[in-house]
Amino acid sequence: MEKHVVVIYPHPDDESFGAAGTIINFRNQGVPVTYLCGTLGEMGRNMGSPTFANRETLPYIRKKELLAACNVLDIELKMLGYRDKTIEYEDRQEVAQHLKGILETIKPSLVITHYPDHAVHPDHNALGAAAIEAVRQMDKENRPTLWAQAISNNHIEELGDPDIKNDVTEHFDKKMEAILCHDSQASGILGNFKKRDEVADDVKEAAKRRLGKEQFYHWHFDD
């Protein structure tokens, strides 16, 4: 059993769309989970449907949504304070040092982050790379296990089959509850699934097909 799980993603909603079912599994086993959320999604395009946010109010709205989702998932939250869409321009080593300091305090047994170059959004790729660098720099005997999540269209072709496949359909309702906390973003993103999935007859079906499985690659270090 894991001792403590740390999830490192850049945006409010990455945790709910990407790993909510996995998180719920750990929480059901009594494993503490901490979410290190990189930004407040300040640059999101979705402003609610119908719109209720603007560029200046969005960070405050998304912060409230994030707190609500973490409450549903019953996890600790630490906000890292970067600005949306700028993480790749930050100094990689500085971000890695920042994360390493936090990891050395929490001492997790497992870290979950995005797979660099296979996570589509530049913030996902950059924070994933910094998180992996942070774990790499830890003493080998203290390093947590690392799972990296790929979401690029070609990741199976290029990386092979993910070695961790969590079927989370049994937690689907609670996962949706966490996703729907992100009210300003959820309908826009769920609508996109529906548009791309001609088989599903409604948004919920499309979401179930897309979100019922959570997959990760076990990250191996050279040394």
């Binding site: 979705n46 402003m47 449907s49 560029r55 200046e56």
Partner: peptide, 30 residues
């Protein structure tokens, strides 16, 4: 916004922001 900041934006049919122009005598948050 906040009594003095002028926010202008263009949204698409789904309400997503495509363009914005904002002017203020005091700085915008970070």
């Amino acid at each position: 916004h906040e009594e003095e900041k002028l926010l202008l934006a263009g949204h698409d049919r789904e309400g997503r922001l495509m363009v914005s122009l904002q002017i203020s005598e005091t700085p915008f948050d970070y």
